[in-house]
Design a protein around this nucleic acid. Structure first.
Lengths: 249, 249
DNA sequence: CCAAAAGTGTTGTTACTACACCCATGG
DNA sequence: CCATGGGTGTAGTAACAACACTTTTGG
């Protein structure tokens, strides 16, 4: 059954390491795609996901993730950079590989294995203008009805991963503007993790980590006492981490 | 550039959802492989990994992971079942998908994207007999020198994931025999996580979780007082988990 | 002056750490 | 009887949860 390759190796005993060489025509028939689960956050709503209207049968009219096929000359872990830029005009966003989905029947046009990444952006940073108008939209994570492909499953998996990470790394800052108040930060955690936390305990904890810089600025135009603004300091967090300390909530 | 498919869709506008249809000859050129990082544990040594001698240029003579190409009719997440069975004679092992490695140049014979899984087995359960004699061997996780492909990186990633999981789920039991003593369990954690823990505190904690069944059996043929044996009870752990309680160490 | 959300300390409880001696077996 | 590791309790400390009132702004 196994055939030998003509290129780069004369190995013909094929039950060897890692790759059973069954011939190009058999093995090199997969497409690899990359799907980006782009999470955003806008106050007082819940987490949101950016979706794109699908125009591919049999999923016409359904919404699905932004994604693309991996290019032959492109590293898997760099593909999201291109996709986020090309399809959503996003640069400098946080993203992380989550998992690869490869059910045989997950894609109607052939064997497509898809690696999912999630990324975190501020909703306001996305230019939803121009051509993409009605084709791209933010959805509340709990108003997702029927999505294209296995994108429902992919989003659920990414959401679970995100929640995990939020608890143990200071990722939440990627969802907020650079300057934010502590109540804003707290609400983000409450909304994203679907919990409620005590205001005083939350402030004490987050302050004790010493990863925030207290600014001499305050909110304005809020119909109540304005909150003091803070800024996340990556460098202080790194120092914390080097000391082996955990983040935790 | 984009071509339309003849099957299942008439879509010719190709800048659409998820897949840029650039034609079969462009897109369906990837091979997908599955690499299994098989962790084992034998008392008083550290964690071990099962490796296979590579006989593919340019990696002849190096050791590498057990793996294989994903079959066209095989679900990605089920491939490890086959690979573990075919290549190591293993059935009923715990495994988990970790990450997908897809650097352009990671494989010398072409574009191969590889999804890594780790799995946990008792070393004694592997029949290293027969034909595979000198081709397959256990290695201490810190005696890995130069490995084939990017397998060093894959193992490191899987090891990090395993350690994470060990701390927060009762996975360690998969590395031990069904009946074990508490000191055995403790040593596993100490060796695998490279920490030391206090005997009394460890016992108190693990017992408080109530996921172990205390047996009326003891070790034998040990040159000292024999330890009482316990058995992990999955059902009790599930109950614990349903109450939202965490495992933690 | 009213509504609405920001800000602030203390106390009780629980979980974690540190620590030393006796016990049962095999040789 | 000796060596080896198995088994047990307590006390101090640090982290966490619960809780109510005053302050500042916009309208």
């Amino acid at each position: 059954m196994p055939l030998s390759y003509t290129s780069k190796t004369e190995n013909s005993q094929a039950e060897n390491i890692n790759i059973q060489l069954s011939g190009v025509e058999d093995s090199y028939r997969f497409a690899v795609s990359v799907d980006c689960v782009i999470f955003g956050y806008s106050e007082k709503q819940s987490l949101q996901v950016l979706l794109l209207a699908c125009n591919m049968a049999p999923y016409d009219g359904l919404w699905g993730l932004l994604g693309d096929l991996l290019h032959p000359d492109e590293n898997l872990d760099e593909a999201p950079l291109r996709i986020l830029r090309e399809r959503a005009g996003l640069t400098d966003v946080y993203y992380e590989q989550v998992q690869t989905f490869g059910r045989v029947d997950r894609h109607p046009i052939g064997r497509v294995v898809s690696t999912a990444f999630y990324s975190l952006v501020q909703i306001s940073s996305i230019p939803l203008s121009s051509s993409s108008k009605n084709r791209v939209r933010w959805f509340n994570i709990d108003e997702l009805h029927q999505l294209a492909f296995d994108h429902q499953e992919i989003i659920e998996t990414c959401l679970a991963r995100l929640r995990r990470r939020l608890r143990e790394s200071p990722l939440g800052f990627n969802l907020l503007p650079q300057k934010f108040s502590l109540p804003q930060l707290q609400t983000l955690y409450e909304v994203a993790l679907d919990i409620t936390v005590d205001k005083r305990n939350f402030r004490r904890k987050i302050k004790s980590l010493e990863i925030l810089e207290e600014l001499d600025e305050y909110q304005s135009d809020v119909g109540h006492r304005p909150g003091r603004l803070y800024r996340f300091r990556q460098d202080r967090y790194e120092k914390l981490r080097r000391r082996g300390l955990k983040f935790e909530l």
